[in-house]
Nucleic acid binder design. Structure first.
Lengths: 347, 347
DNA sequence: TCCACTTGCGTTAACGATAACAGTGCTTGG
DNA sequence: CCAAGCACTGTTATCGTTAACGCAAGTGGA
């Protein structure tokens, strides 16, 4: 009834009801030992009666440290990034930190504004999946709080980051196809300006060199941004005079587009690709996927960040670290090869 | 160099450098007209030089309103909820609000703590996908800020919510199977304590009644919580003396488990289910999916919340509203029925 | 010439919580 | 019997920002 603003009761209100000063209320809530049992109980009663909750904004101002970290991903709709967010969330919660979320929607031009906003909100640190290669705004943010990059490396920035074994994974998956005797493998990739795109192409190429097979440039398609563009590129490849005999896709969206194209055209080709996805095991296609734990990228990024926060003011700033999350190749056979009919492993 | 705490420069520092008071800096940054052009420029120069950013925490304290809303979902790893989060994020951004994220991980016992934490952080409102049927803590939160429920309805609470057409969608999908002459349709459902589980079963049942077919109780399996339990339940059904001739699944995880079981056992049955998922169109199964826009649930929830925030202090509190997001049935045929070989629609 | 009025800026007092300090009674030892 | 110590609680100042007000200098109309 006496609400000044929209906000609820203050410590002062609680104190008035319990007949003590706001300071004593603060002490009770902080579990300070120097408070008599009687007072303590009166205060708790008043807190209960008013439904009082401590104002974290005011505490942050007084104590420093907002209890929040910022997370900026490029596309929450992609399971990869939502898993990453989940991993960050998990570790942050363990340390009593909340996550303030930003989604750049793959639009690099929005990222600076997003990040500035998070800094304004006094986040204690930032985890960013950078959308573009311009990272000037990140340098600006680093003047205020520590920044950890995820999934993509810094470009001329001295900062911690967490990556997957892009090169190694791509090489290994490609090697699997080559080991089966494939020699005309098409490459369906995202824009090479992206670090992951470039690295995965490098791995693809390296695997070829190792076995002395020359990749056919006519089979290399880059700059694909989603399932639809990948689908079209695949149709295009299938229509060539000398079509590929296998496909390599650099991420989950592209794999899905390629698979859709194969399905629609009634063709079956071995497909290799980065990123695992739901139901990859029941497609009835010979699939070779580079799988890794997306949550783990988030967890590791959060750990690096929290580590920075904890050793903050100390001695000289530590050198920046680069953590790599391992990949492993998962293979799914065609139904004939795999032989359906066996019961589930569990019960 | 002069950093008192970990935090950066203050308005005072900017003012000192620009030879004005902090108040004038505030006015410049607020675009207040009563400042001379010369002063304005000096201030901006100082802001630039120091890399000054306004402390949103202090502003929130002074002005009231943190510029944040809280979002609590049950499982960010489920694409459904990450899409929902994306929708919330989208609308929130349009209104200059940030999203403080919470993930209950399907654990109802964690939800109260999460929500209290968000309230402490002075979020201006909450969007919650409640994990359990106990909603006492939500009532507590509503004493402080408006709350909007998403995907699941309030239990004895007077609050806005956004739902999907659970009953209608389930009925329609089931009707499709029945119209094809199926009479032994198994029901694979999540725990009936969940609203969605109960409603979808109701829809399943209603469709049967409408055509005068009695559902076989032996084919109804509830309490499935993930793909693995659904897979086991499906194997169990397939092993019956009189196995089902079609399946109805109440959500994406369950559909996926059922599909995996069918694949492994080399069986093909028509499957209907709630929630669309990636690659549902290329499985080569006769699939009937109840599809809807998960983003839209988030967007609508955010709109309801923001609407409350805007009419806040006004007259009598408006009655609570319930918004429903429409569903539509999507059908995918088996390869033979559909006939592969046609090119993609786009270019 | 003088007073209202504007322009441009500084001062003060909050927002809510809390660290640091300052009491107020009581006990206890010399 | 008094100083010193302890247990408990209140006061003051502060975190960074800003609404409200104050005040000086300049402007213009009567």
């Amino acid at each position: 009834m006496t609400a000044r603003r929209g906000s609820g009761p203050t410590m002062h209100d609680v104190g008035k009801l319990a007949q003590v000063s706001a300071m004593t209320v603060s002490r009770v809530l902080k579990d300070d030992p120097g408070v008599s049992e009687a007072t303590r109980e009166r205060v708790f009663a008043a807190v209960d009666r008013l439904g009082y909750r401590r104002n974290q904004t005011a505490r942050s101002l007084r104590l420093g440290g907002s209890g929040m970290i910022g997370l900026v991903v490029t596309n929450l709709a992609n399971p990869f990034y939502s898993r990453l967010a989940l991993g960050v969330q998990e570790v942050a919660t363990d340390y009593g930190l909340r996550v303030l979320l930003g989604n750049s929607g793959e639009r690099a031009d929005r990222e600076p504004g997003l990040i500035d906003g998070l800094v304004d909100h006094q986040v204690e640190g930032l985890i960013v999946v950078p959308a573009g290669s311009r990272q000037q705004h990140l340098a600006r943010a680093m003047r205020h709080v520590p920044v950890v990059l995820a999934a993509r490396p810094p470009a001329g920035l001295d900062t911690d980051c967490v990556l997957v074994e892009d090169f190694h994974g791509a090489r290994e998956a490609t090697a699997c196809l080559l080991a089966e005797g494939q020699t005309r493998i098409a490459f369906l990739g995202n824009p090479p300006a992206l670090y992951t795109g470039a690295e995965r192409l490098r791995g693809f190429w390296a695997a070829h060199e190792e076995v002395g097979v020359e990749p056919d440039n006519a089979l290399i398609r880059q700059g694909l941004v989603d399932a639809a563009t990948a689908e079209r590129a695949t149709f295009d490849l299938l229509g060539l005079d000398e079509p590929p005999t296998a496909l390599f896709c650099t991420n989950n969206r592209i794999s899905q587009g390629a698979i859709r194209a194969l399905y629609k055209s009634g063709t079956t080709l071995p497909v290799a690709g980065f990123d695992d996805f739901d139901l990859s095991d029941v497609l009835g296609l010979p699939l070779t996927l580079v799988s890794y734990d997306a949550d783990e990228i988030g967890r590791q990024a959060a750990r690096l960040l929290i580590d920075r926060l904890e050793q903050d003011g100390d001695a000289a700033p530590r050198a920046s670290r680069r953590v790599t999350v391992p990949t492993r190749v998962v293979r799914h056979g065609a139904p004939s090869a795999d032989g359906p009919g066996h019961p589930p492993t569990g019960a």
